[in-house]
Design a protein around this nucleic acid. Structure first.
Length: 199
DNA sequence: CTAACGATTCGCT
DNA sequence: GCGAATCGTTAGT
């Protein structure tokens, strides 16, 4: 077992961590049903400096409070009243940083993921996009605050490493409200991977 | 208590 | 390419 330990998530540079998470495997086990995917797209959010982060400038609310905990917890919230978006809380206590997982490449439990997504055949949209991958992996708001060191949701390092040329760094999606911070190159994805959320 | 609004997705044109 | 779907969170009355 190559489960990633909590120390990993407590690194202080959330942008570096978002890039490093590419190639890691995300697992869920719900009622004995195992599903997983390899992370191929992420975005970094920095609580102290970044206007796009829900916890921007020490804004502590009921929803964002989990981001102020030490790294290694799940931050899941409902977006547009429809989609559950899965983030990993990072950095030390009081540093409200998080990485949004935007896309994975399906690995284990393909039939389970198809059923959850209401699809009969696999396609490139099965786990592409933050709402889609959460649905495929069965992640919902009940995962809010769940430790990534447990047996329900966790990450594994299977020694997949991407070279600099295989990783694209660009601006984040859907954060126009953040002013200048919308232009930060804090979105990372694996070049040419068919499961990234947008071209 | 009320109202506005999303770190999106899917289907239809 | 465009617009509807849909509801918890948030801030303001």
């Amino acid at each position: 077992m190559a489960k990633i330990s909590l120390d990993y998530y407590r690194q202080q540079n959330v942008v570096h961590l978002a890039k490093d998470l590419l190639g890691k495997y995300l697992f869920t086990r719900i009622d004995g049903q195992l599903t997983s995917g390899m992370i191929v797209e992420t975005e970094a959010y920095n609580g102290r400096t970044d206007a796009a982060c829900h916890a921007h400038a020490y804004k502590r609310t009921a929803r964002t409070s989990i981001m102020y905990e030490a790294g290694g917890l799940a931050y899941v919230y409902l977006c547009y009243g429809i989609h559950h978006l899965f983030n990993i809380v990072t950095n030390q206590e009081e540093y409200a940083d998080a990485v949004l997982i935007r896309a994975v490449e399906p690995v284990d439990g393909l039939d389970i993921m198809l059923a959850r997504r209401g699809k009969s055949k696999p396609d490139n949209r099965l786990t592409a996009g933050p709402g889609s991958l959460s649905k495929a992996l069965g992640i919902n708001r009940s995962f809010y605050g769940e430790s990534l060191d447990g047996n329900t949701i966790w990450l594994e390092d299977r020694n997949i490493r991407f070279s600099k040329g295989e990783i694209v760094e660009t601006t984040r999606i859907g954060v126009d409200y953040a002013g200048d911070d919308a232009f930060l190159p804090w979105r990372f994805y694996v070049k040419d991977n068919p499961y990234i959320s947008k071209k």
